[in-house]
Design a protein around this nucleic acid. Structure first.
Length: 498
DNA sequence: TTTTGAGTTGTTCGA
DNA sequence: GTCGAACAACTCAAA
Protein backbone atom coordinates (compact mmCIF):
# COMPACT_ATOMS: atom_id res chain seq x y z
CA UNK A 1 0.00 0.00 0.00
CA UNK A 2 1.18 3.51 -0.74
CA UNK A 3 1.98 5.49 2.37
CA UNK A 4 0.28 8.84 2.12
CA UNK A 5 1.98 11.94 3.43
CA UNK A 6 0.87 11.62 7.01
CA UNK A 7 1.00 14.74 9.13
CA UNK A 8 2.30 17.01 6.39
CA UNK A 9 2.72 20.49 7.75
CA UNK A 10 2.65 23.85 6.01
CA UNK A 11 6.04 25.29 5.18
CA UNK A 12 5.76 28.07 7.77
CA UNK A 13 6.12 25.49 10.52
CA UNK A 14 9.42 24.18 9.20
CA UNK A 15 12.69 24.58 10.99
CA UNK A 16 15.96 24.83 9.07
CA UNK A 17 15.46 25.22 5.31
CA UNK A 18 16.60 22.14 3.44
CA UNK A 19 17.76 21.20 -0.05
CA UNK A 20 16.26 18.65 -2.44
CA UNK A 21 18.00 16.52 -5.07
CA UNK A 22 15.72 15.08 -7.74
CA UNK A 23 17.37 11.92 -9.09
CA UNK A 24 16.36 10.65 -12.51
CA UNK A 25 18.70 8.80 -14.86
CA UNK A 26 21.54 9.23 -12.39
CA UNK A 27 20.98 6.57 -9.75
CA UNK A 28 24.35 6.94 -8.10
CA UNK A 29 26.21 8.79 -5.38
CA UNK A 30 29.58 8.73 -7.12
CA UNK A 31 30.41 11.56 -9.52
CA UNK A 32 27.00 13.15 -9.13
CA UNK A 33 27.27 16.91 -9.72
CA UNK A 34 23.73 17.66 -8.51
CA UNK A 35 24.36 15.84 -5.25
CA UNK A 36 27.71 17.51 -4.71
CA UNK A 37 26.24 20.95 -5.31
CA UNK A 38 23.37 20.22 -2.94
CA UNK A 39 25.75 19.03 -0.24
CA UNK A 40 27.77 22.19 -0.62
CA UNK A 41 24.79 24.17 0.63
CA UNK A 42 25.30 22.63 4.05
CA UNK A 43 21.59 22.14 4.72
CA UNK A 44 19.48 19.11 5.60
CA UNK A 45 19.27 17.02 2.44
CA UNK A 46 16.41 15.15 0.77
CA UNK A 47 16.80 12.75 -2.11
CA UNK A 48 13.83 12.06 -4.35
CA UNK A 49 13.00 9.69 -7.20
CA UNK A 50 9.73 10.13 -9.08
CA UNK A 51 8.12 7.39 -11.14
CA UNK A 52 6.26 9.39 -13.74
CA UNK A 53 3.95 7.26 -15.87
CA UNK A 54 1.41 9.96 -16.59
CA UNK A 55 3.02 13.14 -17.90
CA UNK A 56 2.19 13.45 -21.60
CA UNK A 57 4.84 12.47 -24.10
CA UNK A 58 7.02 10.44 -21.76
CA UNK A 59 7.87 7.05 -23.16
CA UNK A 60 6.91 4.35 -20.64
CA UNK A 61 9.81 2.16 -19.58
CA UNK A 62 9.96 -1.29 -21.13
CA UNK A 63 9.38 -4.33 -19.00
CA UNK A 64 13.06 -5.27 -18.65
CA UNK A 65 13.96 -1.70 -17.76
CA UNK A 66 11.24 -1.65 -15.11
CA UNK A 67 12.78 -4.72 -13.54
CA UNK A 68 16.16 -3.00 -13.61
CA UNK A 69 14.77 0.21 -12.15
CA UNK A 70 13.30 -1.66 -9.19
CA UNK A 71 16.58 -3.32 -8.37
CA UNK A 72 18.56 -0.15 -8.96
CA UNK A 73 16.36 1.94 -6.67
CA UNK A 74 16.56 -0.73 -4.00
CA UNK A 75 20.35 -0.67 -4.22
CA UNK A 76 20.47 3.12 -4.21
CA UNK A 77 18.13 3.36 -1.21
CA UNK A 78 20.40 1.00 0.64
CA UNK A 79 23.53 3.00 -0.16
CA UNK A 80 21.82 6.22 0.89
CA UNK A 81 20.65 4.77 4.19
CA UNK A 82 24.09 3.40 4.89
CA UNK A 83 25.32 6.98 4.76
CA UNK A 84 22.66 8.36 7.03
CA UNK A 85 20.16 9.58 4.46
CA UNK A 86 16.91 8.33 3.03
CA UNK A 87 15.55 8.02 -0.50
CA UNK A 88 12.03 9.34 -1.03
CA UNK A 89 10.00 7.48 -3.64
CA UNK A 90 6.97 9.11 -5.19
CA UNK A 91 4.75 8.32 -8.13
CA UNK A 92 2.81 10.74 -10.30
CA UNK A 93 3.27 13.65 -12.70
CA UNK A 94 6.80 14.81 -12.00
CA UNK A 95 6.15 18.54 -11.94
CA UNK A 96 3.36 18.22 -9.39
CA UNK A 97 5.14 15.65 -7.26
CA UNK A 98 8.36 17.65 -7.08
CA UNK A 99 6.42 20.76 -6.11
CA UNK A 100 4.59 18.85 -3.40
CA UNK A 101 7.77 17.36 -1.97
CA UNK A 102 9.37 20.80 -1.86
CA UNK A 103 6.39 21.97 0.18
CA UNK A 104 6.41 19.02 2.51
CA UNK A 105 10.11 19.04 3.20
CA UNK A 106 10.50 22.78 3.42
CA UNK A 107 13.26 22.66 0.83
CA UNK A 108 14.29 26.04 -0.52
CA UNK A 109 16.53 24.83 -3.28
CA UNK A 110 16.46 22.04 -5.83
CA UNK A 111 19.19 20.33 -7.85
CA UNK A 112 19.05 17.87 -10.72
CA UNK A 113 21.27 16.54 -13.48
CA UNK A 114 20.06 17.37 -16.97
CA UNK A 115 18.41 14.84 -19.27
CA UNK A 116 17.44 14.88 -22.95
CA UNK A 117 14.39 14.10 -25.05
CA UNK A 118 11.47 16.33 -25.97
CA UNK A 119 9.06 15.51 -23.14
CA UNK A 120 11.58 15.30 -20.29
CA UNK A 121 13.16 18.58 -21.33
CA UNK A 122 9.78 20.26 -21.57
CA UNK A 123 8.86 19.08 -18.08
CA UNK A 124 12.17 20.22 -16.65
CA UNK A 125 12.24 23.65 -18.23
CA UNK A 126 8.64 24.44 -17.29
CA UNK A 127 9.20 23.26 -13.75
CA UNK A 128 12.38 25.27 -13.43
CA UNK A 129 10.64 28.43 -14.59
CA UNK A 130 7.65 27.90 -12.28
CA UNK A 131 9.70 27.10 -9.21
CA UNK A 132 12.14 29.91 -9.79
CA UNK A 133 9.18 32.30 -10.00
CA UNK A 134 7.94 31.04 -6.66
CA UNK A 135 11.26 31.60 -4.94
CA UNK A 136 12.91 28.18 -5.12
CA UNK A 137 16.52 28.17 -6.26
CA UNK A 138 16.68 25.58 -9.04
CA UNK A 139 19.98 24.42 -10.48
CA UNK A 140 20.40 21.90 -13.26
CA UNK A 141 23.78 20.28 -13.75
CA UNK A 142 25.64 18.70 -16.62
CA UNK A 143 26.44 15.14 -15.66
CA UNK A 144 26.03 12.18 -17.97
CA UNK A 145 27.92 13.14 -21.10
CA UNK A 146 31.43 14.29 -21.82
CA UNK A 147 30.03 17.39 -23.48
CA UNK A 148 26.74 19.25 -23.37
CA UNK A 149 25.24 18.67 -26.85
CA UNK A 150 24.15 22.27 -27.32
CA UNK A 151 27.70 23.43 -26.79
CA UNK A 152 29.47 20.82 -28.85
CA UNK A 153 29.08 21.74 -32.51
CA UNK A 154 31.07 21.98 -35.73
CA UNK A 155 33.10 24.97 -36.73
CA UNK A 156 30.07 26.41 -38.50
CA UNK A 157 27.88 26.04 -35.43
CA UNK A 158 25.76 23.07 -36.52
CA UNK A 159 25.64 19.72 -34.72
CA UNK A 160 27.89 16.92 -35.96
CA UNK A 161 26.25 14.41 -38.26
CA UNK A 162 29.20 12.16 -38.98
CA UNK A 163 30.82 10.15 -36.25
CA UNK A 164 34.50 10.39 -37.14
CA UNK A 165 34.83 14.18 -37.15
CA UNK A 166 32.59 14.27 -34.07
CA UNK A 167 34.86 11.91 -32.22
CA UNK A 168 38.04 13.58 -33.43
CA UNK A 169 36.78 16.92 -32.19
CA UNK A 170 35.75 15.41 -28.88
CA UNK A 171 39.10 13.74 -28.40
CA UNK A 172 40.75 17.09 -28.99
CA UNK A 173 39.18 18.24 -25.71
CA UNK A 174 40.76 15.34 -23.79
CA UNK A 175 40.98 14.61 -20.94
CA UNK A 176 37.46 15.09 -19.57
CA UNK A 177 36.95 16.49 -16.09
CA UNK A 178 37.96 14.49 -13.03
CA UNK A 179 35.06 12.54 -11.49
CA UNK A 180 33.70 13.71 -8.14
CA UNK A 181 34.00 11.30 -5.22
CA UNK A 182 30.93 9.84 -3.56
CA UNK A 183 30.17 11.39 -0.15
CA UNK A 184 30.97 9.19 2.84
CA UNK A 185 28.12 10.64 4.85
CA UNK A 186 24.89 12.32 3.93
CA UNK A 187 23.56 15.00 6.25
CA UNK A 188 20.58 13.93 8.36
CA UNK A 189 17.33 14.77 6.61
CA UNK A 190 16.01 16.98 9.39
CA UNK A 191 12.42 17.26 10.46
CA UNK A 192 11.04 17.66 6.98
CA UNK A 193 11.88 14.07 6.23
CA UNK A 194 9.58 12.90 8.96
CA UNK A 195 6.68 14.69 7.36
CA UNK A 196 7.35 13.62 3.78
CA UNK A 197 6.13 10.08 3.22
CA UNK A 198 7.67 7.70 0.73
CA UNK A 199 6.00 5.08 -1.42
CA UNK A 200 7.03 1.50 -0.83
CA UNK A 201 9.05 0.36 -3.84
CA UNK A 202 7.16 -2.93 -4.00
CA UNK A 203 3.89 -1.05 -4.49
CA UNK A 204 5.16 0.26 -7.80
CA UNK A 205 4.90 -3.28 -9.16
CA UNK A 206 7.91 -2.89 -11.41
CA UNK A 207 8.79 -6.57 -11.12
CA UNK A 208 7.04 -9.23 -13.18
CA UNK A 209 4.76 -11.54 -11.25
CA UNK A 210 3.40 -14.58 -13.03
CA UNK A 211 5.17 -15.76 -15.02
CA UNK A 212 8.41 -14.51 -13.53
CA UNK A 213 10.31 -14.08 -16.79
CA UNK A 214 13.03 -12.10 -15.02
CA UNK A 215 14.85 -14.99 -13.36
CA UNK A 216 17.37 -15.25 -16.19
CA UNK A 217 17.85 -11.50 -16.12
CA UNK A 218 18.42 -11.58 -12.38
CA UNK A 219 21.02 -14.30 -12.82
CA UNK A 220 22.89 -12.17 -15.35
CA UNK A 221 22.93 -8.78 -13.69
CA UNK A 222 23.49 -6.89 -10.45
CA UNK A 223 21.88 -3.47 -10.84
CA UNK A 224 23.20 -0.61 -8.75
CA UNK A 225 26.44 1.25 -8.21
CA UNK A 226 28.25 -1.65 -6.62
CA UNK A 227 27.39 -3.97 -9.49
CA UNK A 228 28.45 -1.32 -11.98
CA UNK A 229 31.81 -0.79 -10.31
CA UNK A 230 32.37 -4.54 -10.20
CA UNK A 231 31.70 -4.81 -13.94
CA UNK A 232 34.18 -2.04 -14.66
CA UNK A 233 36.84 -3.69 -12.52
CA UNK A 234 36.28 -7.07 -14.14
CA UNK A 235 36.46 -5.56 -17.61
CA UNK A 236 39.72 -3.79 -16.83
CA UNK A 237 41.18 -7.03 -15.53
CA UNK A 238 40.37 -9.06 -18.59
CA UNK A 239 38.18 -7.95 -21.50
CA UNK A 240 40.07 -4.78 -22.26
CA UNK A 241 43.26 -6.70 -23.08
CA UNK A 242 41.82 -8.19 -26.25
CA UNK A 243 38.95 -5.80 -26.81
CA UNK A 244 39.87 -4.60 -30.26
CA UNK A 245 40.30 -8.09 -31.65
CA UNK A 246 37.68 -10.08 -29.80
CA UNK A 247 34.87 -7.73 -28.91
CA UNK A 248 32.95 -9.02 -31.91
CA UNK A 249 32.89 -12.58 -30.61
CA UNK A 250 29.55 -13.39 -29.00
CA UNK A 251 30.83 -16.78 -27.91
CA UNK A 252 33.41 -15.12 -25.66
CA UNK A 253 32.59 -13.05 -22.62
CA UNK A 254 34.78 -10.02 -23.12
CA UNK A 255 32.39 -7.10 -23.27
CA UNK A 256 32.21 -4.53 -20.53
CA UNK A 257 28.52 -5.16 -19.76
CA UNK A 258 28.32 -1.55 -18.65
CA UNK A 259 25.47 -0.46 -20.93
CA UNK A 260 22.53 -0.87 -18.52
CA UNK A 261 24.53 0.65 -15.68
CA UNK A 262 25.25 3.66 -17.86
CA UNK A 263 21.62 3.81 -18.98
CA UNK A 264 20.43 4.28 -15.41
CA UNK A 265 23.38 6.41 -14.44
CA UNK A 266 24.72 3.95 -11.90
CA UNK A 267 28.18 4.76 -13.14
CA UNK A 268 29.28 7.93 -14.86
CA UNK A 269 31.04 8.09 -18.18
CA UNK A 270 33.66 10.28 -16.51
CA UNK A 271 34.39 7.55 -13.98
CA UNK A 272 34.81 5.01 -16.76
CA UNK A 273 37.10 7.26 -18.79
CA UNK A 274 39.17 8.03 -15.70
CA UNK A 275 39.56 4.32 -15.00
CA UNK A 276 40.65 3.65 -18.57
CA UNK A 277 43.16 6.47 -18.49
CA UNK A 278 44.50 5.13 -15.20
CA UNK A 279 44.82 1.67 -16.75
CA UNK A 280 46.60 3.16 -19.73
CA UNK A 281 49.17 4.71 -17.43
CA UNK A 282 49.24 1.80 -15.00
CA UNK A 283 51.50 -1.15 -14.35
CA UNK A 284 50.00 -3.44 -16.99
CA UNK A 285 48.67 -1.11 -19.66
CA UNK A 286 46.42 -2.63 -22.32
CA UNK A 287 47.45 -2.05 -25.93
CA UNK A 288 46.52 1.40 -27.21
CA UNK A 289 44.21 -0.02 -29.85
CA UNK A 290 42.14 -1.75 -27.19
CA UNK A 291 41.72 1.39 -25.12
CA UNK A 292 40.94 3.43 -28.21
CA UNK A 293 38.38 0.94 -29.44
CA UNK A 294 36.55 0.97 -26.15
CA UNK A 295 36.68 4.73 -25.85
CA UNK A 296 35.16 4.91 -29.32
CA UNK A 297 32.23 2.84 -28.05
CA UNK A 298 31.70 5.47 -25.39
CA UNK A 299 31.96 7.92 -28.25
CA UNK A 300 29.06 6.24 -30.02
CA UNK A 301 26.97 6.50 -26.88
CA UNK A 302 27.86 10.18 -26.75
CA UNK A 303 27.04 10.62 -30.45
CA UNK A 304 23.63 8.97 -29.95
CA UNK A 305 22.79 11.37 -27.14
CA UNK A 306 23.78 14.32 -29.29
CA UNK A 307 21.42 13.02 -31.98
CA UNK A 308 18.62 12.71 -29.44
CA UNK A 309 19.22 16.29 -28.37
CA UNK A 310 18.96 17.39 -31.99
CA UNK A 311 15.96 15.28 -33.04
CA UNK A 312 14.00 14.59 -29.86
CA UNK A 313 11.45 12.28 -31.49
CA UNK A 314 13.77 10.15 -33.54
CA UNK A 315 12.41 6.97 -32.00
CA UNK A 316 9.37 7.56 -34.22
CA UNK A 317 10.67 9.44 -37.23
CA UNK A 318 13.44 8.57 -39.64
CA UNK A 319 16.14 11.19 -39.77
CA UNK A 320 16.33 10.62 -43.51
CA UNK A 321 12.81 11.55 -44.56
CA UNK A 322 12.96 9.48 -47.71
CA UNK A 323 12.36 6.50 -45.46
CA UNK A 324 8.86 7.76 -44.81
CA UNK A 325 7.94 6.18 -48.12
CA UNK A 326 9.95 2.99 -47.77
CA UNK A 327 7.77 0.01 -48.76
CA UNK A 328 7.80 -1.78 -45.40
CA UNK A 329 5.99 -5.07 -45.10
CA UNK A 330 3.57 -5.35 -42.19
CA UNK A 331 3.59 -9.06 -41.39
CA UNK A 332 2.83 -10.17 -37.87
CA UNK A 333 3.84 -13.77 -38.63
CA UNK A 334 7.44 -13.07 -39.56
CA UNK A 335 7.68 -10.43 -36.85
CA UNK A 336 6.62 -12.99 -34.26
CA UNK A 337 9.11 -15.54 -35.59
CA UNK A 338 11.85 -12.94 -35.25
CA UNK A 339 10.86 -11.99 -31.72
CA UNK A 340 10.72 -15.59 -30.56
CA UNK A 341 13.94 -16.67 -32.24
CA UNK A 342 12.23 -18.95 -34.77
CA UNK A 343 13.57 -17.60 -38.06
CA UNK A 344 15.53 -20.68 -39.01
CA UNK A 345 18.79 -18.71 -39.04
CA UNK A 346 20.72 -19.95 -36.00
CA UNK A 347 22.69 -16.80 -35.24
CA UNK A 348 19.56 -14.65 -35.44
CA UNK A 349 17.59 -17.05 -33.27
CA UNK A 350 20.39 -17.36 -30.73
CA UNK A 351 20.52 -13.59 -30.38
CA UNK A 352 16.79 -13.16 -29.98
CA UNK A 353 16.66 -15.89 -27.38
CA UNK A 354 19.62 -14.49 -25.48
CA UNK A 355 17.76 -11.18 -25.43
CA UNK A 356 14.61 -12.74 -24.05
CA UNK A 357 16.45 -14.79 -21.45
CA UNK A 358 18.95 -12.24 -20.16
CA UNK A 359 17.75 -8.78 -21.17
CA UNK A 360 20.80 -8.23 -23.31
CA UNK A 361 22.36 -9.31 -26.59
CA UNK A 362 25.91 -9.20 -27.82
CA UNK A 363 26.51 -6.07 -29.88
CA UNK A 364 27.60 -7.88 -33.04
CA UNK A 365 24.49 -10.04 -32.93
CA UNK A 366 22.29 -6.98 -32.41
CA UNK A 367 23.45 -5.73 -35.77
CA UNK A 368 22.78 -9.05 -37.41
CA UNK A 369 19.25 -9.48 -36.02
CA UNK A 370 18.42 -5.84 -36.76
CA UNK A 371 19.66 -6.12 -40.31
CA UNK A 372 17.69 -9.35 -40.67
CA UNK A 373 14.43 -7.77 -39.54
CA UNK A 374 14.82 -4.66 -41.63
CA UNK A 375 16.41 -6.07 -44.77
CA UNK A 376 15.53 -9.75 -44.97
CA UNK A 377 12.01 -9.36 -43.59
CA UNK A 378 11.50 -5.74 -44.73
CA UNK A 379 9.86 -4.87 -41.44
CA UNK A 380 9.76 -1.28 -40.27
CA UNK A 381 12.77 -0.58 -38.04
CA UNK A 382 10.36 0.90 -35.49
CA UNK A 383 8.88 -2.54 -34.83
CA UNK A 384 12.33 -3.82 -33.94
CA UNK A 385 13.16 -0.74 -31.94
CA UNK A 386 9.97 -1.22 -29.92
CA UNK A 387 10.80 -4.86 -29.16
CA UNK A 388 14.31 -3.96 -28.05
CA UNK A 389 12.86 -1.16 -25.96
CA UNK A 390 10.68 -3.62 -24.12
CA UNK A 391 13.21 -6.42 -23.66
CA UNK A 392 16.66 -4.85 -23.28
CA UNK A 393 17.75 -3.89 -19.80
CA UNK A 394 19.96 -1.24 -21.41
CA UNK A 395 17.22 0.17 -23.68
CA UNK A 396 18.26 3.79 -23.93
CA UNK A 397 16.16 6.58 -25.45
CA UNK A 398 19.22 7.76 -27.35
CA UNK A 399 21.15 4.66 -28.36
CA UNK A 400 18.23 2.39 -29.21
CA UNK A 401 16.67 4.52 -31.94
CA UNK A 402 20.07 5.73 -33.13
CA UNK A 403 21.33 2.21 -33.69
CA UNK A 404 18.13 1.00 -35.34
CA UNK A 405 18.17 3.94 -37.70
CA UNK A 406 21.80 3.28 -38.39
CA UNK A 407 21.06 -0.29 -39.44
CA UNK A 408 17.97 0.70 -41.40
CA UNK A 409 20.03 3.27 -43.26
CA UNK A 410 17.90 6.23 -42.25
CA UNK A 411 20.03 7.61 -39.43
CA UNK A 412 23.11 9.71 -39.02
CA UNK A 413 26.20 8.34 -40.74
CA UNK A 414 24.07 5.35 -41.67
CA UNK A 415 25.09 2.07 -43.19
CA UNK A 416 24.81 2.02 -46.98
CA UNK A 417 21.74 0.22 -48.23
CA UNK A 418 23.73 -2.56 -49.84
CA UNK A 419 25.26 -3.56 -46.52
CA UNK A 420 23.03 -6.53 -45.84
CA UNK A 421 24.43 -8.90 -43.27
CA UNK A 422 24.52 -12.53 -44.28
CA UNK A 423 23.55 -14.32 -41.05
CA UNK A 424 25.43 -17.46 -42.07
CA UNK A 425 28.66 -15.67 -42.95
CA UNK A 426 28.44 -13.57 -39.81
CA UNK A 427 27.98 -16.70 -37.75
CA UNK A 428 30.95 -18.47 -39.29
CA UNK A 429 33.08 -15.39 -38.86
CA UNK A 430 32.22 -14.35 -35.32
CA UNK A 431 30.98 -17.57 -33.75
CA UNK A 432 33.47 -19.87 -35.48
CA UNK A 433 32.94 -22.87 -33.24
CA UNK A 434 29.18 -22.39 -33.04
CA UNK A 435 29.27 -22.28 -29.25
CA UNK A 436 27.09 -19.19 -29.05
CA UNK A 437 24.44 -20.84 -31.19
CA UNK A 438 24.63 -24.08 -29.22
CA UNK A 439 24.16 -22.22 -25.98
CA UNK A 440 21.01 -20.40 -27.00
CA UNK A 441 19.58 -22.80 -29.58
CA UNK A 442 19.98 -26.10 -27.75
CA UNK A 443 18.07 -28.04 -30.40
CA UNK A 444 21.13 -27.54 -32.65
CA UNK A 445 23.66 -28.31 -29.92
CA UNK A 446 24.78 -31.61 -31.40
CA UNK A 447 25.28 -30.28 -34.90
CA UNK A 448 28.95 -30.10 -35.99
CA UNK A 449 30.31 -26.60 -36.49
CA UNK A 450 30.43 -26.96 -40.23
CA UNK A 451 26.63 -26.88 -40.40
CA UNK A 452 25.60 -25.23 -37.17
CA UNK A 453 25.05 -21.85 -38.82
CA UNK A 454 23.17 -23.30 -41.79
CA UNK A 455 21.46 -26.52 -40.74
CA UNK A 456 19.45 -26.73 -43.96
CA UNK A 457 22.68 -27.41 -45.84
CA UNK A 458 23.58 -30.40 -43.71
CA UNK A 459 23.25 -33.92 -45.15
CA UNK A 460 20.28 -35.92 -43.92
CA UNK A 461 22.40 -38.37 -41.93
CA UNK A 462 24.20 -35.51 -40.13
CA UNK A 463 20.88 -33.96 -39.17
CA UNK A 464 19.54 -37.30 -38.03
CA UNK A 465 22.64 -37.99 -35.93
CA UNK A 466 22.27 -34.59 -34.29
CA UNK A 467 18.60 -35.18 -33.61
CA UNK A 468 17.56 -32.27 -35.83
CA UNK A 469 14.37 -32.52 -37.87
CA UNK A 470 14.04 -29.31 -39.87
CA UNK A 471 10.55 -27.93 -39.77
CA UNK A 472 9.90 -29.91 -36.58
CA UNK A 473 12.61 -29.53 -33.95
CA UNK A 474 13.99 -26.40 -35.62
CA UNK A 475 12.41 -24.20 -38.30
CA UNK A 476 13.33 -24.06 -41.94
CA UNK A 477 14.66 -20.60 -42.86
CA UNK A 478 11.67 -18.27 -43.16
CA UNK A 479 13.29 -16.51 -46.08
CA UNK A 480 16.00 -17.51 -48.49
CA UNK A 481 19.00 -15.25 -48.03
CA UNK A 482 19.78 -14.57 -51.69
CA UNK A 483 16.16 -13.83 -52.56
CA UNK A 484 15.68 -11.67 -49.48
CA UNK A 485 18.80 -9.74 -50.32
CA UNK A 486 17.65 -9.04 -53.85
CA UNK A 487 14.21 -8.04 -52.55
CA UNK A 488 15.75 -5.59 -50.09
CA UNK A 489 17.91 -3.99 -52.77
CA UNK A 490 14.84 -3.64 -54.97
CA UNK A 491 12.87 -2.04 -52.14
CA UNK A 492 15.60 0.50 -51.55
CA UNK A 493 15.72 1.22 -55.25
CA UNK A 494 11.96 1.74 -55.23
CA UNK A 495 12.24 4.21 -52.37
CA UNK A 496 15.04 6.22 -53.90
CA UNK A 497 13.46 6.39 -57.36
CA UNK A 498 9.99 7.50 -56.27
C1' DT B 1 32.63 30.19 -51.62
C1' DT B 2 34.22 26.29 -53.54
C1' DT B 3 36.50 22.25 -53.34
C1' DT B 4 38.03 18.08 -51.60
C1' DG B 5 38.39 13.96 -49.05
C1' DA B 6 36.07 10.93 -46.41
C1' DG B 7 32.57 8.15 -44.37
C1' DT B 8 31.86 1.72 -37.66
C1' DT B 9 30.70 -2.79 -38.01
C1' DG B 10 29.43 -6.10 -45.41
C1' DT B 11 28.73 -9.24 -49.36
C1' DT B 12 29.43 -11.02 -53.73
C1' DC B 13 31.60 -11.84 -57.92
C1' DG B 14 35.15 -12.78 -60.92
C1' DA B 15 39.99 -13.22 -61.76
C1' DG C 1 41.46 -20.41 -51.45
C1' DT C 2 42.49 -15.49 -51.86
C1' DC C 3 42.15 -10.93 -53.41
C1' DG C 4 40.40 -6.62 -55.19
C1' DA C 5 36.67 -4.26 -57.08
C1' DA C 6 31.91 -3.16 -57.37
C1' DC C 7 27.88 -2.26 -55.06
C1' DA C 8 25.58 4.70 -55.45
C1' DA C 9 25.43 8.57 -54.76
C1' DC C 10 25.33 11.88 -51.14
C1' DT C 11 26.33 14.59 -47.31
C1' DC C 12 29.28 16.27 -44.13
C1' DA C 13 33.31 18.83 -42.28
C1' DA C 14 37.01 21.43 -42.97
C1' DA C 15 40.55 23.62 -45.69
Amino acid sequence: MIVEGDGRMPRSKRGTPSVLVWLRDDLRLDDNPALVAALAEGRPLHLLYVLDEVSPGLRPLGAAARWWLHRSLAALGHEIERRGGRLLLRRGPAAIVVGAVLEETGAVSLHWNRRRGAAPQAIDSTLKADLTASGIAVQSHHADLLHEPSRFVTGSGSPYRVFTPFWRALRATWPPRTPLPAPDRLPPPGEGEIAAGSDALADWKLLPTAPNWASGIAASWTPGETGAAARLTAFLERGIYSYSLERDRPDLDLCSHLAPHLRFGEISVHRIVAALEAARGGAAPPAEENVEKFLAELGWREFSHHQLARSPDFAHHAVDRRFDRFPWIDDETTLRAWRRGRTGYPLVDAGMRELWATGTMHNRVRMVVASFLVKHLLQDWRAGEAWFWDTLVDACPAANPANWQWVAGSGADAAPYFRIFNPVTQGEKFDPLGDYVRRWVPELARLPKRWVHAPWTAPADVLAAAGVRLGETYPQPIVEHAKARARALAAFAEMTSS
